[in-house]
Amino acid sequence: MSNLKVNIAGVEFKNPVITASGTFGFGKEYGEFYPLSALGGICTKGLTLKKREGNPPPRVAETYGGMLNSVGLQNPGIEHYLAEDDKRLAKEDVVVIANIAGSTLEDYIAIAERINDSHADMVELNISCPNVKQGGMAFGVLPKNVEEVTRAVKNVCRKPVITKLSPNVSCIADNARAAESGGADAVSLINTLSGMAVNYRTRRPVLANNNGGLSGPCVKPVALKMVWECYNAVKIPIIGLGGITCYTDVLEFMICGARAVQVGTANFSDPTAAYDIAKDLEKYVEENDVDINDLVGTLILN
């Protein structure tokens, strides 16, 4: 019998399509295009304890088949989120994943405690933002740090925790294992790849921040391989992301081991991208009479 529902750490998603953190704000803007309830879930913009202004512009550079961003975790802060966005999102019939980031271990613990008071269904731990000097990435590189920050958050957080992994590491499977050891309920991958765009005329990087995070269709092969590597390394569910633009991309990620996926940069090309993908997936499972869960990890190596 056809089925599109997936379950991650006890949380049921009506379909495996989640919008990726940082590409969807807090759902308000895209909610003008389609009902958020059409999606499996949404990930909020990365939240920090205090409001963050982010990096100076330009913060975006298009590259072949992708783009670099250097937003730098601009966000209104957790208190503003709890007061303004949390209640609005709670009314939507969609799984809400609060993405949280910090500069120190104490930050992560403090924000994880605050998020307990929210209506969010899950928490995604951002330890892989390449655009802020302190934190984010600093916790995402060495397996022992991944484990430490995951455990610290798990100790205080009453919601299921997803650790979001960075691809800018020597072995992402080791970091997935570390997250699992730290108690993560799931992992999501990949965050953006660190990169640079250069203007030959000015001899300067295009981004004011010099470096940025690469996303879009060009990163999909990297992401698929990493999802497969992690699938073979851990038992906890994997949420796959990186360059998904259509429903067949979702099927590829699930075959490589993802239980659900996130759609990010595609939202910029088409505001209705995530909606369209969810609708197309629905059509696919109906036409082929499949349970989407049966696809997970069915990759046949040559």
Binding site: T23, E32, P57, R59, V60, N69, Q74, N267, F268
Partner: peptide, 26 residues
């Protein structure tokens, strides 16, 4: 004018700095 991502206010890449009564911000 600024380089844009989503064009609808979600991605925060096209920011510019303004100074208002409540201080300076993007």
């Amino acid at each position: 004018e600024q380089r844009m991502g989503c064009g609808i206010g979600a991605c925060l890449v096209c920011n510019c700095k303004v100074k208002r009564a409540d201080g300076e911000g993007y």
